[in-house]
Design a protein around this nucleic acid. Sequence first.
DNA 1: CTTATTATTGCAACTTAGTAGCGATAATAT
DNA 2: ATATTATCGCTACTAAGTTGCAATAATAAG
Lengths: 137, 137
Amino acid sequence: MQLSSDNMKRRNTQFKSEIFDLLQQSNHALNHEMITEALNLKIDRTTIYRILNSFCEDGKVHKIIGDDGKQYFAYCENCKKIKNKHSHKHLHFRCLSCGKLECLKQRIDVDLPMGYDGKMYNFLISGYCNTCNAVTE
Amino acid sequence: MQLSSDNMKRRNTQFKSEIFDLLQQSNHALNHEMITEALNLKIDRTTIYRILNSFCEDGKVHKIIGDDGKQYFAYCENCKKIKNKHSHKHLHFRCLSCGKLECLKQRIDVDLPMGYDGKMYNFLISGYCNTCNAVTE
DNA sequence: CTTATTATTGCAACTTAGTAGCGATAATAT
DNA sequence: ATATTATCGCTACTAAGTTGCAATAATAAG
């Protein structure tokens, strides 16, 4: 039982704070690869995933699945304000050119059919972001 | 150049029609694994992906990335009506219990910030569908 | 109908993402 | 200072999806 179990006490480590700081400073979501590149520490892949997932469990960060199938993680200032835990009922945008995945402000009002119980929300648009779009024109 | 190139002429084959029929008859999206199980033919993984991607290119089917990171493909009657090509600006729902991924009717009005150019849309909620939800209660 | 063209298929090999087990290390509590 | 146990790195694994290439088969041309 390494991963979660709510009664597990978290410990502060260098890697955790480095990763958390990075996410907090970024204005966009990062995947495992981006994190490895950004921090030029030698951290194992598994360690990164474990740390990121623990952040998710603690509600400090949220996970978005990109339309590239990869897991992205975002601190996301906006939704932090709404509640203590993260809310994901807003749009995300992934740029096909620079790869940046960011949280947009637009919230989505969900109206599920009778009997449906929504648990997780993943609203993603991909295309070209304002900076990349400007360059091509 | 096997995959796409718009000037490639499609040929009718057993596998293509079997897969297309299956998608059309299903009221939900299927991934590679589900298709392999449903048709008990011996079709290679690569063949299935190639066929599915060709359907996507031809606009006969659309692709949704599940929050499990897998590619799902749906015929989706609803969006067929709107245009000749598929539109993806509607909600999808994936059941965490039975695994079914279906298109919902609710459309999403997207209002991207200035300078953003949206190309692909992936709106997915996961949770418990009406049938699975009914069972647990 | 026969032949030529080339889309399609299967196979093998590969890449990449993410996970699981386990022993070693190190953060916290006592 | 010591015990507890969360964390880390390593190895190995699974699963998804892709690519190259040779063999097969659907269509077009004669």
